[in-house]
């Protein structure tokens, strides 16, 4: 029960920071609140025994924060609040339907802390066939061996997505060829 309580407390902190980020008027404060959400998420990854993810999340969060501050700091920060009752009503009905089905779906999941782990069990038992070798790939870090060996094409696709996103940013932001 102990670890579950700690994780639930940090998640409540994340939810509070997210509500602040969504509802506060000043855009710069909103961006800083998103940074708080990301840093707590990094802490949660560390508690959930995922050190690689914690490191990557921290770096990504800092980069995203810098870019978001660049986008908001010199610009008009007024909040364009919604006055229309119709939009909020429809949104609330949609959210209630979503909650109903999501609660039914969550009941089907394995309980927290008791995963099925079919693939991972294969990796550490049957996959451990070679003598004097710690695993099938010989890698000590199993997460690294999955992303670079078993799912190497997946990582190649990730690099493609990153390259495409950089191309998109360059195409959108370039100064040459822009009509005045």
């Amino acid at each position: 029960m102990g670890i579950e309580l700690v994780i639930s407390g940090l998640l409540v902190l994340m939810i509070i920071a997210a509500i602040v980020a969504v509802e506060i008027k000043d855009l710069l404060s909103s961006v800083v609140a998103v940074g708080a959400v990301g840093v707590v998420l990094s802490l949660l990854f560390l508690l959930l025994q995922a050190p690689d993810l914690a490191i990557v999340q921290l770096v990504v969060e800092i980069l995203a924060l810098i870019i978001l501050v660049r986008a908001t700091v010199t610009r008009d920060g007024t909040d364009y609040s919604t006055k229309e009752i119709f939009v909020k009503t429809v949104t609330m009905i949609g959210v209630l339907i979503f909650i109903f089905y999501a609660f039914r779906a969550i009941k089907e999941l394995p309980r927290f802390g008791e995963p099925k782990m079919k693939v991972a069990s294969y990796y550490v038992t049957e996959g451990n066939g070679i003598k004097n070798n710690i695993s099938e790939t010989g890698a000590a870090n199993i997460v690294a061996s999955i992303i670079l060996d078993y799912r190497g094409y997946d990582t190649l696709g990730e690099a493609t997505v990153l390259f495409t996103a950089v191309l998109g940013v360059l195409a959108v932001m370039r100064k040459v060829g822009r009509k005045k």
Partner: peptide, 8 residues
């Protein structure tokens, strides 16, 4: 150990 596949 925890499940490494979701982490990857």
């Amino acid at each position: 150990m925890v499940d490494p596949l979701p982490q990857a």
